[in-house]
Amino acid sequence: MSTEQQVIEGIIRRDEQIIRDFVRLHQNYVYTLCLRILTNEMLAEEATQDTFLQVIQSMDKFDGRSRLTTWMYTIARNTSINKLRKTNRSRVKSLDQTELAQQPHEDNSEKPLLQKQQREQLERCMQKLPIEERETLTLFYFKELSIREIGEITGDTESNIKVKLHRGRKHLKTILEASVHGQIDLLYG
């Protein structure tokens, strides 16, 4: 029996320890995807909760045609996009207007200041990208999904994903360079 199968069965029979481990393992990834789509911490948190609830409650309907994570990210993406439509936030909201810069996370305090600044700078610039590039870059840099799997989640072809990745990186470079007046090395340290 595969580990994934054990997790699926554990969640179906509501094994609290398995569910706890599952949420702990994936919450940062799901939250990051929701945050990059919604660009708002509070909404991202709600979307993350909704995603996990939906995954857990519909686990018995999971047909196993894709990997569990692919299915979960599809739910997270759809939940976030629906929330985005509902809250009528189709345009990117600046990070300056969100709580991200002011609200420290539990593990940020011990990280070097430079890293924290870089992370915030990257997030700020990411939010200026079009939503399709943001979600594609986010999913790609999770480093656990193939191009084909990213395509399954977003509904794009593999070649479209490659184009969005390429455009996204280039677009991000331009935004980052503008934010540090062309000296990208300063940004990376």
Binding site: R20, Y31, T32, T48, H105, E106, R119, E123, K143, L176
Partner: peptide
Amino acid sequence: AVHRMLSQFSVQPAPHGLE
């Protein structure tokens, strides 16, 4: 440099207590 940044900060920590 962009690639390294994206790799390094690929995941945001979820808010405290979310789990």
